[in-house]
Design a protein around this nucleic acid. Structure first.
Lengths: 210, 210
DNA sequence: ATAGTTATGTTACATAAGTTACAGTGTAAG
DNA sequence: CTTACACTGTAACTTATGTAACATAACTAT
């Protein structure tokens, strides 16, 4: 299964064989819902292509973006959830066209002892997610919205490889858990500082952004 | 080793035997530093007695309280850190007198395949820490300081079992990543609402807190 | 082209939170 | 006792962010 080629840098050939045999390839189009709050998780996804946005919802219906998953990354929360047949605390949406490999839960356990590379991968994933969550906390707790907005734009740039961000102000507002007016205000300010140029549904990042 | 009795509800006897053999019991007095930023982690701690506070530091020297660890709980970040000989991203301080069992890193791996109860414990720990971090994010992102302060006081009450919280305003301010004046203001407001009574270094929680 | 919808710009105002400054009060040490 | 220090109370002010209301521009479908 040629789509699994990119995994060969991470896992030994026998494991990739097993993955091809028991995992299932899934495709999602841009904007499609991959995982929703409260759903039971029965497989652990590994992102092969594209980018996945992971959100958290609170009791009052507010949503906030936690982190992105891209090539060869995986959501460890899915892992521990599906080992215990727990419901999802998060929502996942395809940022662009996404291909992922879904590993059935019974294999997760089995491979843990059988393949050291799998165990290492899982542990590294846990650690990466922890670090991402810590970064989220740091960002929300210690940085003001203008700094968070700049970080957000740069992250989008990094993931897409393009310095033109395609997003509306209200989408950005949702992902940063604030209101559209506030984002428009801050973006206009950044434009006045020549750090970005605003178009409809597009934001061009200039070198001055930092 | 009688101190390990409380673990018998979680682990099978043979594992507890191994724990007693290879783990080391450590004691910390109230306020003592258990783990600091940037230190290498070589053992995974399981809290047997007392409560541990876990903090995160950001680039600008700001600290924020992430969560508490109490009986039989463990910091999964330590786990994934020490599997990869990574430096600590967090700091841990003894909230009161603490006894913990430190498991050397080489055993972590070994037990994972050997003892199902250990694997389940580790996975459950990962999940609990994720949920705690998500709660932190929710709290910081969506709740105003007065609500967070109330939640903080109630958590202290739950952990200590007493409705009299021993803490100065500036300690609380540090743990919620704000300033002393702000906390004093909010506490005074809660006192006016008859929800608490303020003393020097002590706060008495009334039933009206909710 | 027209109407409806979505995106953006902008003003005015409300509120939460951060900041500075200072006074008073309890506690500990000498 | 008195000196020093940590803790608390409060006032005045600034700033960041949230909210409501409205205008205009751009895009979509008929």
């Amino acid at each position: 299964m040629s789509n699994l080629d990119s995994l060969s840098t991470v896992f030994e050939p026998e494991l990739i064989q097993e993955m091809a045999a028991s995992g299932s390839l899934q495709n999602f189009k841009e904007g499609e819902l991959i995982m929703d709050y409260g759903k039971y998780i029965r497989t652990m996804p590994i992102v092969l292509k594209g980018t996945v946005k992971v959100y958290k919802l609170d009791d009052n219906g507010n949503e906030i973006l936690l982190y992105y998953l891209s090539d060869n990354e995986s959501c460890s929360m899915a892992y521990s959830c599906c080992l215990e047949a727990r419901k999802s605390e998060v929502k996942a949406i395809a940022e662009d066209d996404v291909e992922l490999l879904a590993i059935p839960h019974n294999k997760l356990d089995e491979w843990l002892c059988k393949f050291p590379s799998w165990k290492n991968y899982v542990m590294r994933s846990f650690n990466e997610r922890f670090i991402e969550l810590l970064k989220s906390i740091e960002s929300i707790a210690f940085h003001k919205l203008d700094e968070r907005l700049i970080a957000y734009l740069k992250e989008k740039q990094r993931l897409s490889g393009s310095s033109v961000i395609k997003a509306s102000h209200s989408t950005i507002a949702d992902e940063l858990a604030t209101s559209r007016v506030v984002i428009s205000r801050l973006l206009k300010q950044l434009e006045n500082e020549k750090k970005i140029i605003l178009y409809r549904n597009e934001i061009k990042l200039m070198s001055g952004l930092g």
